[in-house]
Design a protein around this nucleic acid. Sequence first.
DNA 1: TAGTGGTCTAGACCACAGC
DNA 2: CTGTGGTCTAGACCACTAT
Lengths: 236, 236
Amino acid sequence: MGAADIEVPVFQRIKDYLLAQIQAGHWKEGDAIPSEQELARQFGVSRMTVNRAVRELTADQILTRVQGSGTYVAQHKYQSTLVAIKSIAEEVRGRGHRHRSELHLLERAKASEIMAAPFGVKPGYALFHSVIVHFENEVPIQVEDRWVNPAVAPDYMEQDFSSMTPNEYLMAAAPLQGVQYSIEALPAPRDIAAMLQMQPKDACLVLKRRTLSQGQAATVVTMWHPGSRYQFAGSF
Amino acid sequence: MGAADIEVPVFQRIKDYLLAQIQAGHWKEGDAIPSEQELARQFGVSRMTVNRAVRELTADQILTRVQGSGTYVAQHKYQSTLVAIKSIAEEVRGRGHRHRSELHLLERAKASEIMAAPFGVKPGYALFHSVIVHFENEVPIQVEDRWVNPAVAPDYMEQDFSSMTPNEYLMAAAPLQGVQYSIEALPAPRDIAAMLQMQPKDACLVLKRRTLSQGQAATVVTMWHPGSRYQFAGSF
DNA sequence: TAGTGGTCTAGACCACAGC
DNA sequence: CTGTGGTCTAGACCACTAT
């Protein structure tokens, strides 16, 4: 399959290049990266284009800039994982309980307008889509509705999700750069309610998460939990 | 040229202008804002400068753009950072909105069996108890049901909670040693529903928090939020 | 002083939406 | 078709850092 003529903007290619260098360890924390002039020359583009790439990575805390001095790889900041990236299987087993999952759907689908936005692609762009129900001691505790960017995990469809959760697979397949999440309380839609063995409109605890990898959205997942028998907890 | 003049970059002045228009209510959610051409003409600058201002606000989810169509004010979601030791008043004001609170109850009460446990005291022990409703732009977004240990904050009852939230007072009065929290989705009880102007049994996002100070439980608080118009969010 | 980043210009071509 | 945003150029002047 020939690479589709996806037009990747130059500034994005420069961002990808810089991220790749950092990811590969060629540039370590605190190291200076090439100047705008130098990058402009390397890529054969104008300085403004390089400037945009570097400025955006600076806004993302990947780089830091010092006027008159140079651009440096930022110190990696460790942050407490309130709502961990941890796999639910691991969590259930950690409680000494049995974890099991049921695959309800696994498909190639086109991005709707709603899904196109978080991925930063156009509607119609091909995405992978899976729906899995997780059980703790045979009680359903989570519906995992996941969309995956094929550019980041091209062989997502070939995985055996009974032996490895999508989360575990993706963590291994794509280096994680960032996470955005939100937690909401929503009434259960009919289909979700059925899978979780609860009444429609009963309260669900919903965790939405968008993870970034290689400078683009890797996966967007919505996790539905029955409000009556699930909670997030932690301490610090 | 006054050397003392503060140099504010043009793109920043344009961002400030756009934010001011939105905050002042001149442009509401979903409204189209002037085109880049138009703004460039208004400010007497080049389109690239306007482009940067608008692009950065789009990255911040303040605006949304549609190629070929225009730029629009994004739908606003009330959300809160999960590392929510922060005062809700501060957070609301940080969004440029008005915060107001109503004190529904302020009493000395004896610990029930349920409340005695988290405080590590015996039932009947005297505790302070307050119930406050918080509003963002006159929309109720939180019922704060708080129990306070008099040993840690003896003058809790004498505070004016219209000028300072309990959280702000306690943060100042008692050094924080630790926090435990849980997040749940629960149906709204009648009284909570009334205060939040929602229907009983509709989904609430509930944050329970227990803070430790001076080696003992300082405060136990249950915060109820309407599921339909509130969420916790964050990134790392 | 030489090199860096910070900002800005006045054009340009393109893809796309809406009429 | 016109008008919109998306991108890019090849310069420019400035403030700042390091030598």
